[in-house]
Amino acid sequence: MTVIRAFFISLAVITLMTTTSASQIPRLQTGGTGDQVVAADGLSATLFAQRAGQIADMVRGDDGTLYLADRSGGRILRVIDRDMNGRADLMQPLPHRFDGPGGLAIIDETLFVSDRGGVWRIDPDGGTPVLLAPFANADISEDPVPLVALTSGMIRMGLNRRDGTASLIDVDALTGRADAVESAPGRILSFSRQAHPSDEAERDALGHDRLSWVILQRDGRTFAGSRLRSATPVASSATHLWLDPATGQALMGLTDRVSEARASFEGLSEPGRDILSGLNGGVGTMVTDVRGLFIAEPRRGRVWRVEAAKPETIKSEILKPESETDEVQGADGLPPPGAEKAGPESSQPALLRGSGIGQASQMGSASTMGPASKLPPAAPPSQTPTQIPTQQSEDDPD
């Protein structure tokens, strides 16, 4: 009996030690599958930022700083890359809390934030946020309110109302005057982001550096276009777009991947080659500059940076928890053909030059994507913000 009792005591001790040891091992919660993110051949993906909450939107400042809207935490996070080498040096929250921030826009380094209460104007370097356009009596749903900056100094936002209709509203960034552009049945998901021109001369040559397309859902289908009523069907799982008005090239954010597409007067093509796949936290806003393509992974609170792969890189890697150096790279380890020939003044990051999505549109120049909506003139400055229109004026364009 003494031997048997000693055996069971030893077994209990071993079991306890094994359980305790296992509980101390950090495990990545991936729903039972490995967290493997794969970049296309010739490209690499680096984890640029993480632990950013639920990323509802992302914008880029002229100095390369990324701003992230954490909807669940009510924070606006600033991700700083001081030397623009593609590695984040600092991520810090702005000293203000918002009520479910869902949209961001930036004009001349002034940041605009939409939350459940309205659109706020804020200086990222300090100062108290100003309520530019409140949502009182607008009858909006609980969906995030996406924003995009227009070249006229206007902020365009998408409102989803409780009656099942969606509205495009233009807000003057200085006065807060809000004018209805159009309304239509459906639910607005997001606005596109565009290629970032390298200098002012290039922006002037394009004529518009932020041509905004809208993605919306209606009757169980997904549509994209410059206006609600003229939007055309796209892949049903599309949620976000990146567009280059100069060439018509596009990237489409789907359920767990980013794929190539083409944009023209006729609409958006079907998804092509996958640029990045395996994003089990979803695909959010995409922005670009000379460092490459930045992709938000909303539910995982992460931002990826995709660029042309270096010769020594490999195709993919299982991510380690909370690592800031995990990379996923191209299979052949070679830069895409033609990438080394691109001039330093090109607006295309290395990712988009020669990667298969950098070819000029066969349909013409930037005008192939259609003109931006005609905007109303700005109102004189006022002391109080203007409430959001509840319906479209009869004189508004279709």
Rank of each mutant, 00 (worst) to 15 (best):
A261G: 09
D89N: 14
R82N: 14
H208P: 01
G301L: 03
D204A: 15
F112A: 03
G86Q: 06
R121H: 06
V306A: 04
G284E: 00
G86F: 04
G186L: 10
G32N: 08
P124M: 11
L254E: 10
Q348N: 10
L228A: 00
W213K: 01
D57K: 09
P349F: 05
T151A: 06
G330Q: 04
G86D: 11
P397D: 04
T2L: 09
R262P: 01
V214S: 02
L77D: 06
L351K: 02
F8W: 02
P311T: 09
S382L: 02
A88T: 12
S237E: 13
N85H: 07
G42L: 06
P298Y: 01
E200D: 14
G358M: 07
G248P: 07
V38A: 12
S259I: 03
M252R: 02
A184N: 09
A360F: 03
G31A: 09
G31H: 11
E345H: 08
G272M: 05
G164W: 14
V303L: 03
G272W: 00
I318L: 12
P321H: 10
G102V: 02
E142F: 10
S190D: 10
D398C: 07
D62W: 02
T15Q: 02
Q92P: 01
T33N: 13
S167H: 04
G176C: 04
V290Y: 04
D81P: 00
R162A: 13
H196I: 05
Q249C: 06
I188V: 08
L66H: 08
I76P: 04
F48A: 15
A173H: 10
E270G: 05
T46R: 13
A39Q: 03
P376N: 01
L28Y: 06
G220V: 08
K374N: 13
N160H: 14
S226A: 09
L90T: 08
D163W: 03
A263L: 10
G61R: 11
R193Q: 15
A205K: 14
A69M: 05
L268A: 09
R221D: 14
I122K: 05
L47D: 09
F223G: 01
D256T: 14
E340F: 07
E322I: 07
P377C: 07
S355W: 00
K341H: 05
G343F: 08
G61Q: 10
A224P: 00
F48P: 04
T313R: 10
S141L: 01
M58K: 00
G34A: 13
D179Y: 05
P26Y: 08
L111Q: 07
T46P: 00
Q217E: 11
G292V: 02
L16F: 04
A205M: 05
E340S: 08
M363Y: 05
D57E: 08
G354Q: 00
P95K: 15
L147T: 14
N280I: 15
D70S: 08
T247V: 06
L241H: 07
P271I: 14
V303H: 02
Q24L: 11
E182V: 04
A379L: 03
F7E: 00
A235V: 12
T20R: 07
D256C: 02
E324A: 08
F191L: 09
